[in-house]
């Protein structure tokens, strides 16, 4: 079997997570573990990754596929290094999320759901992220970027390009 393997510290974290649930109910740890897996293995969940999680939890692979395809944060297809998840629900729309989405499309030359050719950026639209008072906004990795303007979007793109360049 050719599958990814968690580094020791992550594996320890995964084992610790499983202890949060009663004996025999280890399947409960699936979402927290899928988050760790996604963060570790390229930002998405390949079949191999999901099979590996199934093995760790001692459940059938199909049980993992079933769950991963239900939750919007689980990427079952590859994504760019930086995923712009822009909220488009009512309160954000009122505050100009449409213009922000259009601006990102124009600047990166991609449509919603697409990734730039260099593999750096993916644009997604998402529904309310609980930041309605700080709209328009997007999620980028672990954090929210709020009160977006075109200028801020430019700055974020630059910042991502810089980090990508220093990490390579």
């Amino acid at each position: 079997m050719n599958h990814p393997v968690f580094p020791p510290d992550k594996l320890a974290k995964v084992k610790e997570l499983i202890t949060h649930y009663p004996e025999g109910k280890q399947k409960s740890a699936i979402l927290p573990i899928l988050h760790i897996a996604q963060d570790n293995f390229g930002g998405w969940l390949s079949t191999e990754t999901m099979d590996y999680v199934a093995e760790i939890l001692n459940i059938l692979p199909v049980e993992v596929y079933e769950v991963a395809t239900f939750y919007s944060m689980c990427n079952v297809k590859p994504v760019g290094k930086y995923v712009f998840e822009v909220c488009q629900t009512g309160p954000c729309m009122i505050n100009g999320s449409e213009e922000i989405i259009q601006y990102i499309k124009d600047t990166l030359h991609i449509n919603v759901g697409e990734t730039t050719n260099d593999g750096l950026f993916t644009l997604k639209t998402v529904e309310c992220l609980g930041a309605c008072g700080y709209a328009p906004m997007m999620q980028l990795g672990k954090f929210y970027r709020e009160h977006l303007t075109k200028g801020k979007v430019d700055a974020i793109i630059e910042e991502c390009k810089k980090t990508a360049a220093t990490n390579n």
Binding site: K25, S28, L31, P32, E66, V67, F70, S72, M73
Partner: peptide, 27 residues
């Protein structure tokens, strides 16, 4: 007290869906 991290599904705010999700299933 343990924190359980969801994964993006409004329906998991509904209490019985939340419990399904906490059991490691679809919400």
């Amino acid at each position: 007290i343990y924190v359980h991290r969801g994964a993006g599904a409004y329906i998991c705010g509904e209490e019985t869906a939340l419990l399904e999700s906490l059991e490691g299933k679809r919400g």
